[in-house]
C-alpha cells in the first residue's frame, strides 16, 4: 500500500544554486501526484530529495523535513529508505550486462533473496504489473538492452516494483519515448495508483491532466499551487499557474 508524504520547509542546493526555496507539500497515498513546471524550476530536485538521491551528488545540500508515513526520512538509513521509495528515471537505464530476468530481480537480490523459485515468482509478478510479461516471457534470458526504448522503461518500472516500494518516484519517465510507448506507461501508472503513492515529474501538461489526481506547479524553486488536477487546469488560483498552463511561458 502507498504511504503519505509530508514535506516541510524543504530547501535544497546544487552547488551555489538554491534549487528549492522552502517547499511545503502534502502528498496523498494511493494517489498520482504530478509535478509540472518549466525547466530548472526544481521539480527533478524535489523528487530526488524524497529518496535522498539528491545528496549523493557532490556539492549538494538539503535542509528541511520530509515525513514518510509518520517518520522522518532523514532519521532513516538512505539505503533502507530507497527500498521503500522506488524511482524510475528519465532515460531507461537497465543494466546492460544483465538479462531481462536478472534486471527485474536485481533489487530483490540485493535484499538477500536467493531462492530461485521466489525470484521467478517475483519476476513474473513484477513484469505483469509493468505490463511487459506477455512481450518478454519467452526471452527472459535475453539482454535487457535488447528491448525497445519503451519496453526498457517498463523493465525499469518492473525492476523498481519488484522491491515492493510504497512510493514510486518517476522523473519524466516517458519523455524519451514515442507516443505509443508513452500511452503504455500512462496506462500502467493509472493501474498502479491503487497500491502506490506515485509522484511523477512531467513537462507534458496533457500527460499530467490525463493521469494525475492532483497536480503541483513549481516555479523557480517554489511551489506555486497544488490541488486537484481538474482544479489546477480549469480554475487555477494563481495567475502564474494560469499563465503557465495556457502556454504563456515555459
Amino acid at each position: 500500500m502507498g504511504q503519505t508524504l509530508s514535506v516541510r520547509k524543504l530547501e535544497a542546493w546544487y552547488g551555489p544554486n538554491k534549487t528549492l526555496k522552502g517547499i511545503n507539500m502534502e502528498i496523498e497515498a494511493n494517489h498520482v501526484t504530478a509535478i509540472i513546471g518549466p525547466s530548472g524550476c526544481g521539480k527533478s530536485t524535489f523528487v530526488r530529495c524524497i529518496n535522498r538521491m539528491h545528496e549523493t551528488l557532490p556539492g549538494t545540500k538539503v535542509i528541511g523535513e520530509i515525513i514518510l508515513d509518520g517518520e522522518s526520512i532523514y532519521d532513516q538509513d538512505p539505503v533502507a529508505l530507497r527500498k521503500t521509495v522506488g524511482m524510475v528515471f528519465q532515460k531507461p537505464n537497465p543494466f546492460p550486462s544483465m538479462s531481462i530476468f536478472e534486471n527485474v530481480v536485481a533489487g530483490v537480490r540485493l535484499n538477500g533473496q536467493r531462492n530461485k523459485q521466489n525470484l521467478q515468482a517475483i519476476a513474473e509478478r513484477s513484469l505483469r504489473m509493468a505490463a511487459l510479461w506477455d512481450e518478454v516471457k519467452d526471452r527472459l534470458n535475453y539482454s535487457g538492452i535488447s528491448l525497445s526504448g519503451g519496453q526498457q522503461q517498463r523493465l525499469c518500472i518492473a525492476r523498481a516494483l519488484a522491491v515492493e516500494p510504497a512510493v514510486l518516484l518517476m522523473d519524466e519517465p516517458a519523455s524519451a519515448l514515442d507516443p505509443i510507448a508513452t500511452t503504455h506507461i500512462e496506462e500502467l501508472i493509472r493501474q498502479l495508483r491503487d497500491n502506490y503513492t506515485i509522484l511523477i515529474v512531467t513537462h507534458n501538461m496533457q500527460q499530467a491532466a490525463r493521469i494525475a489526481d492532483s497536480t503541483a506547479f513549481f516555479l523557480n524553486g517554489e511551489l506555486v499551487e497544488h490541488g486537484a488536477t481538474s482544479e489546477i487546469f480549469t480554475n487555477p488560483k494563481d495567475k502564474r499557474t494560469e499563465d503557465y498552463i495556457t502556454g504563456r511561458f515555459g
Partner: peptide, 27 residues
C-alpha cells in the same frame, strides 16, 4: 560508466559496494 547506471543501483537500495558490484564493475 554512465552515472545513471550508478543511480539505477542506488535507487534500488544498493549500498556503495553493491552499486560498484552491480552497476560499475560489470559495465
Amino acid at each position: 560508466v554512465p552515472n545513471m547506471q550508478r543511480e539505477a543501483a542506488l535507487a534500488l537500495g544498493a549500498t556503495k559496494w553493491e552499486m560498484i558490484k552491480v552497476a560499475v564493475l560489470p559495465y
